[in-house]
Nucleic acid binder design. Structure first.
Lengths: 223, 223
DNA sequence: TCATTGTCGATTGTTAACAATTGTCAATGG
DNA sequence: CCATTGACAATTGTTAACAATCGACAATGA
């Protein structure tokens, strides 16, 4: 087994990513290369490359010759993220339902079981991981590597927004109820139904979050 | 009016991108930072950042501590690219059909007219630009900035594969026939029909290219 | 007063030197 | 003969110094 081996750029990006997703760095916060360089004991060029990677993930914003800032979180970002993610997942389930082999089925069932388990235990962190894991698992099982890449390029933002929503208005959605239609349509190898189920799931999640956002204007962040 | 102002990294990326898309650099070709640095008279770090940007666009592949190479072109890359692009375009037309205002309609009609014009003149380059422009215009008009970003992050590869296919097996598809269903469904504000039209268009394009690929094995590139 | 201009600090953009890693290939030993 | 080891050249990874740009603010003058 190959042991983990990450460049400084990757490690810096990883840490920054975690700090953003974990809300240690608040949305809109200005980031200066020198400060991060001093803080993390690594050269400015290294930080720079890490920030560029995070910009590709839509976690930070870059303004040439001005600086970097943590991406803002507002209704627009939320909606756009949900929509794009939904489109990629819709393709995933279509591919998966159309070409479902033994291994893929096993993976799908496993991640669904984790969902059921998390619903029983009720631990918030488990629920979050199981939810994200189910969606990511579908994309991974689709077999389209470019699709997975594109999905992963916004998955950190997905988790970020998820945590952010849960913190501001913890919802107790029933994981099983919400995902069952998708799961069953894929197992039935009904691509059209699976795609429709994903669209409904996306629409419903987005709708709930947007409603909560508008009833809790206190969570607005000024850039 | 703001005059054009690009960093060296952006200019280097632009030039490399053009060289890949324009087939000056052949698929699978190994790229060394030092050589490019000498060639383009900019520092290695600058080249490095440009290559990282192209890697995010799936035009080059990076292997840590080993090097960079121009992405290979084969059936798998072709299929994955078509599928992802199709998914993003499907979302675009859904959004566009659902929320079609005066401006968006005008933009859409304009890019469709360019398609019709290109079909008449028949100039290959015009046809290519009009085709790509129609698809990109739809995504742009969707109003989802993240969607546009994700789409643009693979659009260079799209053009690359397009040119590559056209060079290897020039097809004389009828631009108007192929795009009319999408155009009309959007104008009719029928999201479902528009989405279906995009899926058919994608499927059809992919099918044609894959068929040509298998009948012309001479175009296979060894990495 | 107020628009214009010049200066300055803060920050990013660029470069070149130095360090670390990889793959190759010949030397070695059983 | 073949697997293992070790040196090496090629290449990427990292750093720190230097250059260019931006935004703000004070000085200037009508």
């Amino acid at each position: 087994m190959a042991l983990e081996k990450l460049s400084l750029v990757d490690r810096a990006a990883q840490q920054l990513r975690q700090m953003i997703v974990g809300a240690t760095l608040s949305p809109g916060l200005r980031l200066t290369e020198q400060d991060l360089s001093d803080e993390m004991q690594v050269a400015r060029g290294t930080i720079r490359a890490a920030l560029a990677a995070l910009a590709a993930e839509n976690l930070v914003i870059r303004r040439p010759y001005v600086g970097w800032a943590v991406q803002a979180v507002d209704g627009e970002v939320l909606r756009e993220s949900y929509q794009v993610r939904g489109a990629l997942e819709e393709l995933s389930v279509r591919l998966l339902a159309t070409d479902l082999d033994r291994d893929k089925r096993a993976d799908l069932v496993a991640s669904y079981d984790r969902l059921v388990l998390a619903e029983c235990t009720g631990e918030a962190e488990d629920r979050l991981r199981a939810d994200l894991g189910f969606h990511a698992g579908i994309v991974r099982a689709s077999g389209n590597k470019l699709l997975l890449r594109q999905y992963e390029s916004i998955s950190a933002q997905t988790e970020w927004l998820y945590r952010w929503s849960e913190k501001n208005w913890p919802r107790r959605i029933n994981l099983v109820d919400w995902h069952k239609p998708i799961f069953e349509a894929i197992l039935a190898q009904d691509a059209e139904a699976a795609a429709a189920a994903v669209r409904i799931h996306t629409q419903r999640s987005l709708h709930d979050d947007m409603q909560d956002l508008h009833t809790n204007p206190s969570t607005q962040i000024n850039r």
